[in-house]
Nucleic acid binder design. Structure first.
Length: 357
DNA sequence: AATCCGGGGGC
DNA sequence: GCCCCAGGATT
């Protein structure tokens, strides 16, 4: 199967053309200033499903705050989440923290340089493993991401659905055959750089492509038809009322989310799933669920937040704690001053609500 | 194999 | 709106 795909494909010229282009055109990115495995690791986790421009400021801040595995291992998870606030996919931060603690405890702070140990760390899957081994340790291991699948689907005119899991394995075999043994780092990064700058999803710049001579899709004029990717299903909509609850001193009620699932361990203003509860039972629901006796006040606004698989539609209300009644303290609840809000990690939609306080 | 898990930006 | 993005964990 692989042999058939690669017949008439000049591997060594492809390697040379790609690597030379990469050396001459690579962007000056902060994680390319060193080969420090720890920093390569952080950059690769941050770059999962996230654009370079978004990652850059987070990478600077994070590596300045946690310059070594030891520093990160010592930090509290809440503080790590705060440094990740706004970047999304927060399990990346929690898994990275867990894995770094393991590296400090078991490997004396040295990032493992072999597939077996590296691949067992939390949050390090096939892609990240290959990226770290090739970039930090110069080992010829494939690092197949969306860019690489797009580039090779065009170069070799592969029409498999890249949304399917088994298709990624096909591309890993292909890259395993084609990867440069002399400079796997430049090879892997070159593929991703090419996908980001030239072999783009829409309107690829084939005339500027260093490997267009090797590209079957270009030869066929089929570059815009590839890669083939089945569509994701639509997100579900969920309606909430979010409550900005204040006591007489103006302190605000915040709530810690569950330690698993969506936005795990982040903080938020209490939210009521209003379709199930019913607006008329909102106050009694809050008392029953949170032990807070509230009086609903004015509506402040609304917002809509789109996740990969979910859409939140939120109406935002002010509320006051009914004086004279006892506020039952729950572990997951805190009453904090407006200034202290910034100590806690909040998901973006709840950051946006703060302007109404 | 399918689903869950964020958020931003391009068009 | 739809699409994409240097994916991994869970079921």
């Amino acid at each position: 199967m692989i042999d058939k795909l690669l017949q008439d494909f000049d591997i060594s010229r492809f390697q040379h053309d790609l690597i030379q282009w990469y050396q001459e055109n690579k962007r000056d990115l902060p994680w390319r200033k060193s080969q420090d495995p720890y920093k390569v690791w952080i950059s690769e986790i941050m770059l999962q499903q996230t654009k370079v421009d978004t990652v850059i400021p987070y990478f600077y801040h994070f590596t300045e705050k946690y310059p070594t595995p030891q520093k990160l291992a010592q930090a509290e998870e809440q503080e790590v989440l705060k440094a990740w606030e706004g970047l999304g996919y927060y399990s990346r931060a929690r898994n990275l923290h867990t894995a770094v603690k393991e590296v400090v405890a078991k490997y004396d702070g040295q990032v493992p340089s072999d597939e077996k140990h590296l691949g067992k760390l939390k949050g390090i899957g096939p892609y990240t493993k290959g990226a770290i081994l090739s970039i930090a340790f110069d080992q010829p291991v494939p690092a197949v991401d969306g860019n690489v699948m797009r580039v090779f689907s065009r170069v070799l005119h592969i029409e498999e659905d890249i949304a399917q899991a088994k298709t990624k394995k096909l591309f890993e075999k292909v890259v395993g055959e084609v990867i440069s043994k002399e400079d796997p780092s430049s090879f892997n990064q070159g593929l991703m750089e090419l996908g980001a700058l030239v072999c783009t999803p829409k309107k690829p710049q084939c005339s500027l492509c260093p490997v267009n001579e090797h590209c079957q899709a270009f030869a066929l004029g089929a570059e815009e038809k590839l890669p083939i990717k089945s569509k994701a299903k639509k997100q579900k909509r969920v309606s909430y009322v979010a409550l900005l609850i204040q006591d007489e001193q103006g302190r605000i009620v915040i709530e810690k989310r569950a330690d698993n699932g969506l936005l795990a361990n982040l903080w938020q203003f209490p939210m009521v799933p209003i379709k199930e509860v019913g607006f008329t039972h909102l106050e009694s629901y809050v008392y029953r669920e949170h032990g807070i006796p509230i009086q609903l006040q004015q509506k402040q606004g609304n917002l809509r937040h789109v996740f990969s698989h979910l859409i939140w539609e939120i109406d935002i209300y002010q509320a006051s704690i009914i004086s004279g009644e006892k506020f039952q303290k729950n572990k997951q609840l805190k009453l904090v001053s407006k200034q202290d809000l910034e100590q806690y990690p909040f998901p973006v939609p709840h950051q946006k609500m703060m302007k109404y306080i």
